[in-house]
Simulated scan of single mutants.
Amino acid sequence: MNKLKYLYEHHNGKVSDKWELYLEKYDRILCEYRSHPINLLEIGVQNGGSLEIWSKYFEASSQVIGCDINRDCYDLEYDSDNIFVIVEDSNSDQAEDKVKSLANGFDIIIDDGSHHSDDIIRSFARYFPLLKDDGVYIIEDLHCSYWKSYEGGIYNLYSSMSFLKNLSDYVNREHWQPEDENFINPILDQLCKVDASIDDDQLKKLHSIEFVNSMCIIKKRPVKNNTLGRRFIVGQDNSVKNLDAHQFKGLKVSKEELDVQEQSPISTIRAYQNERSLMAEKLENLESELHGIYQSNSWKYTSLFRLASRIIKKMVPNQLR
């Protein structure tokens, strides 16, 4: 039986809003965490119903923390003493400090906040480091990532879905990331755009990324669990292709293979966008300088001379100038 779905179907407390698909996936993903006390952080509280249900779903000694920017959340009260609500912008240092004061790391983090791409990316950079090894980070309502009003779009290279797709490539980083200090990591590129950062040692703990409709499930594991490990070549009969275990000590990608990536459409588009941004910045600076000239005293003092010059040009024939 789906315990979480049962709780939702029989819930009479504060209102919670979840899609049915989410309940099915949550029960599959989170059932292993029900056997022991855990720390859960949910970004986005709204009416507070999901915190009540999470409190019932997990062990009584588990700690359930919600964070929401809406000041009305101050009025939320709970019968359970293991539910805590932080009323702050989740992407502020104040919110992070309060979250850290309540729990020493989290087993589960759920982002059900603003759904804006910039906020999703910032939240990941801020709170993924607080996720314990063997923890799970879940992002809801990613359909918003395709909407312009949420800083999204299917071809938007800086949408939250584009960021998460790049994270899925990072799981395979040992096969494509060159050892070149000039290489621009697309993930760090996106983080810089939203004034966020994350330590590379944390990204190395990305174990798996799963996508379902409007939802992303990210699992974190110790670095040693995220490589291919030893290659097993067993058996005696290799009549089709001779495989020698000593030949396959590791995968080495040639520089030529990596060079192909530099010509990818995404790299071309990003280069065009960067060039366009630089041109827009130059144009803005020129307009600012021009505005400064128009506001200067020298421009005002010479206005009569410019007017006289225009009148003379109109009065004197071109051939006499």
Rank of each mutant, 00 (worst) to 15 (best):
A196Q: 06
C192Y: 09
S145K: 02
L164K: 04
G135D: 09
D200T: 13
E181T: 07
N166E: 12
G135I: 11
D195W: 07
D180H: 04
Y146V: 15
S117H: 01
Y150M: 12
Y155I: 13
L203H: 01
W176K: 03
L130S: 00
V171D: 05
R126T: 13
K193V: 11
W176S: 04
C192T: 15
R173G: 01
L191K: 09
W147F: 01
N156F: 01
L167H: 05
N182D: 12
H116G: 03
L188P: 00
R122L: 14
D169V: 04
K148C: 05
L188A: 02
I198D: 00
D119G: 03
D169E: 10
Y146L: 15
Y155K: 15
N172A: 09
S117F: 06
I139V: 11
L203N: 05
N185K: 07
F163Q: 02
P129C: 15
P178A: 11
K193Y: 07
G153R: 06
L157T: 03
V194P: 03
D200P: 01
Y170L: 13
K132L: 12
D169F: 07
D133M: 06
L131M: 05
N156G: 02
F124A: 11
L203I: 08
V194T: 02
H143V: 11
Y137W: 09
F163L: 06
Q177I: 15
E179S: 04
F128Y: 12
K165P: 01
L142Y: 00
H115G: 10
Y146G: 10
S160M: 05
D119P: 04
N166Y: 02
S168M: 13
D134T: 05
V194W: 02
D134V: 00
I154D: 06
S117E: 05
D201G: 11
N166C: 12
S162P: 00
L142E: 03
D180N: 07
S160I: 09
H115Q: 14
I120Q: 06
Y150I: 11
Y127A: 13
S159W: 04
D134G: 02
F183W: 14
P186R: 13
F183L: 08
F183M: 03
N185D: 15
Y170S: 06
S117G: 05
E151A: 01
S159L: 07
D169R: 14
K165W: 00
D119W: 09
Q177N: 08
P129Y: 14
Y155L: 14
G135P: 03
I198E: 02
V194M: 05
L130H: 00
S197V: 14
V171G: 03
G152P: 03
N182V: 05
N172T: 09
K193Q: 12
P178I: 10
Q190K: 14
M161G: 05
K148V: 11
L164H: 00
I120T: 12
Q177M: 15
P129V: 15
Q190F: 05
